[in-house]
Design a protein around this nucleic acid. Sequence first.
DNA 1: CTTCCTGCAAAAGTTTTGCATTAAC
DNA 2: GTTAATGCAAAACTTTTGCAGGAAG
Lengths: 147, 147
Amino acid sequence: MMRRMPTDLHSTVAERLRRVGQRYTEQREALVAALERARKPLSTLEIVQARTGPQSSVYRNLAVLEHVGVVRRVVTEGEFARFELTEELTEHHHHLICSNCGKVEDVTIPTDLESTMDRTVDRLAKRSGFAKVRHRLDLIGTCRSCA
Amino acid sequence: MMRRMPTDLHSTVAERLRRVGQRYTEQREALVAALERARKPLSTLEIVQARTGPQSSVYRNLAVLEHVGVVRRVVTEGEFARFELTEELTEHHHHLICSNCGKVEDVTIPTDLESTMDRTVDRLAKRSGFAKVRHRLDLIGTCRSCA
DNA sequence: CTTCCTGCAAAAGTTTTGCATTAAC
DNA sequence: GTTAATGCAAAACTTTTGCAGGAAG
C-alpha cells in the first residue's frame, strides 16, 4: 500500500505517456493539475472552465489520460461525465454524493471495513468468473444545504 | 425487510402513479415488465427495443416512473444511462460490472457485510452533515469472456 | 370535457471527428 | 523531418421539447 508524493504525480504521468509514445504537454499538465487541485471528480465543463484548452482537446486529452490509467471516468447521477485521477495516483477513496444537487465529496472509510469488503468482493468475483475485481462504494444522500 | 411478490409489482406501480394523478398505461406497464424480466439494469436503447413505445415516450415514461420512485437511474461506465426497478420493488442488491464490455449482472452480498456497511455509512453521514444516506457498492472487473 | 398520454419531428445538449496548422521529439 | 497535439467547425449521438391528435377518467 504505497502513497505517492504530490511531486511524483507529474513525472509519473509523463512516464506513462512516454511509454505509449505520447507527450505530456502543457494542456495535459494543466488538466492533471486541475484534477489534483479539485480533490473531487470534475465534470467536463468544469475541466474546460479551468483553462485546460478548448473543449475538443479536453475530451481528447481525457481519453488519452484514461487510456494510460491516469484518470478515470466517474459517473454520479445523470448530467455529464465526471473525471478524477486514478487511485494509483491518489489514494483509495469513496464518494459522498448529494442526490439533489449532485455535489460530490471524497471520503475515506475505516480500514477494517475496506478489508472486509475486499475479502467478500474476492469471493464473489471468483464465484462469478470475474477477474481483477475492485470495488466502488458510493454514499448517496442529501447534503446539508439541500436538506 | 420485506420482499414483494411479483404479482404485487404492477398494482404497486399503478397505485403510486394514481397518487400523483398519473395513469398506468400499457406502455408504462410494458416498460416496467421489461425491467422486471431483465433482472439487470437496461439502457434506454434496450428499453426502446423491448417494444415499449417510441423513444420520446420511453424517455418521458422513465422520467415519470423515476419521479414516483419506481425506477432509478443507474450509471455504469460511460455510454448511455441505464435504468432498473428501485430496491423497494425488488431487493437490495449490487452490480458486477465488466469494465471491458460493460456487461452488468446483479449480485447480492452477505448480510453481515451489509450491516457493517450500513453502520459505517451512518457514522460517516452524520459526520458530514448528510441525511438519508444509502450506499451503492459496485464490483468492477473483467468478465470471463473478456479475460 | 378536462386532463393526461402519445407520436412525430425538431431542438438542445454532450461528445466525437475531419482537417489544416502548429508544436514536440 | 516525422509523429503527435491543437483548434476550429461540423457531425454524431443521447436526451428533451413543442405541438397536434387520441385516450382515459
